[in-house]
Design a protein around this nucleic acid. Structure first.
Lengths: 205, 205
DNA sequence: TGCCAAAACTAACACTTATTAGTTTTTAAA
DNA sequence: TTTAAAAACTAATAAGTGTTAGTTTTGGCA
């Protein structure tokens, strides 16, 4: 007698300890949102990456928007708390600025997907999250501007428009987005060193 | 006797001479694509901005994708032809680089919407346009890298990784995206001067 | 005026979207 | 082994998508 048994398994989200399923979903969402944008990513697509059905996502998350909110504010919080720490040090302004640049580079290289999404997709946040996010960013920039001003007063920096300098620095560091493509071709340390040097000392001899 | 006449007018796309309706549509599309992203913008939304119905758009354009293609390649062409012009000059490398930076700033300030869309939404291009676009960008960057290398050889520039320098410069200039918010608060000329100075001579005294 | 092409319209198509309801399976503790 | 919660499933909803077909209106020229 032949017994033929067929087993069907339901797919399940794989988690390792200390990582909730919500966090696994959010991380996958970050990758997709980076690759295809928030509006360009569907919940079915996200579910497929996780090996489950779209409707099953809602056992773990509230909504698609919530995913974006989680990503954007996690990044914003990390930048803010690091800045608060760094600000309080007694180093010279040039050193503080250098440390901040290095932290930005670190975030770009190690939290790439989330940072990218926070940089590019925040516009898709719904109110009141949109306003909140913009407010946080403005306050962050204001702190940096104040630092540059201080550096000019202490004669450490040239007499540049502090607002312009901050934008130039922040944007230059964001250039690492493009760098991901050639990640392997260059040592991280020398990359970091070149950017910091370029921004602080310029290109010319 | 009272005669009551009701007139209904069909909306029409307003054009001034030397501007085709297709160009008017494309310009409005650029604004919307910048504000809400390509995937986040619907044809009905675009049509509404123009005061017509969505289906009427198709008397003038082929498809939504075509709009994105038009925008991205118009920008790419402008950058490419300007670079070809500038490269051929007999100026010192530092001057050539400075001119290129100034051109980028000019594009950011005067063709904001199109440049922004080309920078952010090119990923949504369909093949073979996507590959074509990436190829053009790579070749553009390669030319800039060669220029920086030349500048290092002629001892005009410090011994920096040319690839990193190009990315830093291009990204820094893209920071003007954020500047649009405060457009009125600063003279364009001094803004331009500060960025050029920062990138060529650095922040430190 | 009469005519024709350009450009608008309405209506519909076939799909895709995020999300919900209700049901079944799985997991883990009692 | 029973039981309850967690987490998967199927099926459906209502709204929105780009685009096409067919029709009507418009504007300029004969």
């Amino acid at each position: 007698m032949l017994v033929l048994a067929l087993y069907f398994f339901m797919a399940k989200i794989i988690t390792t300890k200390n990582v909730t399923k919500k966090e696994v979903i959010t991380q996958h969402a970050a990758v997709l949102f980076r690759q295809k944008g928030f509006a360009g990513t569907s919940m079915r697509e996200l579910a497929e990456k996780l090996g489950i059905e779209a409707s099953s996502l809602y056992n773990h998350i509230g909504s698609k928007s919530e995913l974006l909110q989680t990503i954007c504010f996690a990044v914003a919080n990390d930048y803010n708390s690091q800045l608060e720490k760094t600000e309080l040090s007694n180093e010279k302004v040039a050193v503080v600025i250098e440390n901040i640049i290095r932290f930005h580079i670190h975030m770009m290289l190690h939290r790439f997907d989330e940072v990218f999404v926070a940089n590019h997709e925040w516009k898709q946040l719904q109110e009141p999250f949109l306003s909140n996010f913009l407010l946080q960013r403005k306050s962050y920039e204001a702190k940096l501007i104040a630092l540059i001003k201080k550096g000019i007063q202490t004669k450490e920096f040239v007499n540049i428009n502090p607002h312009v300098a901050v934008l130039t620095i922040l944007s230059a560091v964001r250039g690492l987005e493009f760098w991901q493509r050639h990640k392997k071709n260059l040592e991280q340390k020398s990359l970091e060193q070149d950017i910091v040097y370029h921004l602080l000392n310029g290109l010319k001899k």
